[in-house]
Design a protein around this nucleic acid. Structure first.
Lengths: 250, 250
DNA sequence: GAGTGGTCTAGACCACGGT
DNA sequence: CCGTGGTCTAGACCACTCA
């Protein structure tokens, strides 16, 4: 009756953890590894229960947690699906550019520079890669109706995003995360942002067409994959009077 | 066998909602009403199950949700307790003033003004009270080591915070939320914040001892009670170079 | 109607905190 | 030791979707 089936897994993940925990890690790993693509349905709960040798209740507890984390999505009568992070909407929830009231739009993107260079040490550290390793650096400007709204500098590790170099920058499109997914198989699932503000520097004043000293919001974002490993670091600046950043606490 | 026991409750809360939902609302209401104070234990799960006529599993599902929402706290072997929102730490997570690295401190508070006046219409609307009703308005300055770090204007509805007028402003202390709780029985449990930035106006430049035009972060906060009803609205301004606001997305 | 998730039950056993 | 929450089960029945 004891659970001790002497199952010595080589990566020793279970040290008498509750089963729903192990299931959680297991499913997370499989999703991160791409066993099911975003939009795919995972097996029905009954099947998962059978294949994992646990009861449906335990499966439900695990899936509940993954749904809460935003990894999965449930639809009664249809199934449980890997969530495609509709990141683009949540990312821009803090802008207040609506053409018509309430309407969202994706700003146009113009790549200003793409280069391969050693990652700045702070960035390498944030991305959790060896100091001094190569990265791809992009500078881009984002505009709405031709008005610059955001100047961005971002880095990704070269090793994992090599294929980004195959695409002409004119063909990058307005959003990068779909490109990461299509070209490099990297799905951005979550992020951490740090906000501050400063008086605009000469460089960015020119880019954003602002008077010297105008306040700009500075947003640093570290984006993570399904497995919570960091993928991309970026710093964005935009005119403060265009920004409202909304947060719920607790 | 049907559940339709023709129970016409006068406030018609249940329109065939799942029981864990009704329990959830029920417990939330009782906590908000102060049946148990922060720090108190609620009855054990078995007892709740018995008194509510549901199984323990259903109680657990409900309590799980309340724990996730931060209303309750569980301790194995001890019980389930109403959480005292240790708001003071989470509220200040965005400052980067540490005297020593990593160390937090509560800024000193100096009340500059207290007055009774009709709530500005935008504030009345945010607080969900009749336009034109009386509010209490406080202006205060918050300092660290004597350096002004934050200038705040805040409003609460007079009706519910009348007793705030009994206390000399010199005795307000450095934190308001504990005062709200002690004097008015109002516990702040959550909040929404909106951030933006602007060039400092003459008034606030003087208060914060900044050069004219220095960028300041502007934080508007709407604070809620356990029952999610708005309690207080405030707007704070502080020098941008003192602020780092950290957020997790998704 | 077959298949899916959604709700709910009644009870077993475990782990922890106090006495 | 007892009372608490923590894990897990096996199965019932409901609600929804889709062919």
């Amino acid at each position: 009756m004891s659970v001790g089936s002497a199952a010595k897994n080589q990566d020793a993940p279970d040290a008498r953890l509750p089963r729903y925990q192990r299931l959680h890690d297991d499913l997370t790993r499989q999703i991160a590894a791409g066993r099911w693509k975003p939009g795919d349905a995972i097996p029905p709960e009954a099947e998962l229960a059978a294949t994992h040798g646990v009861s449906v209740g335990t499966i439900r507890k695990t899936v509940d947690a993954l749904v809460a984390k935003g990894l999965l999505e449930r639809f009664q009568g249809k199934g449980t699906f890997v969530r495609r992070p509709s990141f683009d909407s949540s990312l821009f929830r803090f802008f207040r550019f609506q053409r018509q009231a309430g309407e969202r739009c994706v700003p146009q993107s113009r790549i200003l520079k793409r280069e391969v260079a050693a990652l700045p040490s702070a960035v390498a550290s944030a991305l959790d890669v060896r100091a001094g390793s190569d990265g791809i650096h992009l500078s881009r400007l984002r505009l709405i109706d031709g008005t610059p709204i955001l100047a961005e500098d971002l880095w990704v590790p070269r090793r994992e995003f090599e294929r980004l170099l195959d695409v002409p920058t004119e063909e990058f499109g307005d959003l990068l995360y779909p490109l990461y997914e299509a070209r490099c198989g990297k799905v951005v699932a979550s992020a951490e942002e740090t906000l501050t503000a400063e008086a605009v520097s000469a460089t960015y004043a020119r880019l954003l067409r602002l008077a010297a000293g105008t306040p700009v919001i500075v947003i640093e974002r570290l984006a993570f994959g399904y497995d919570r490993r960091p993928l991309e670091w970026r710093r964005s600046r935009g005119p403060a009077d265009q920004f409202r950043y909304h947060v719920e606490i607790r």
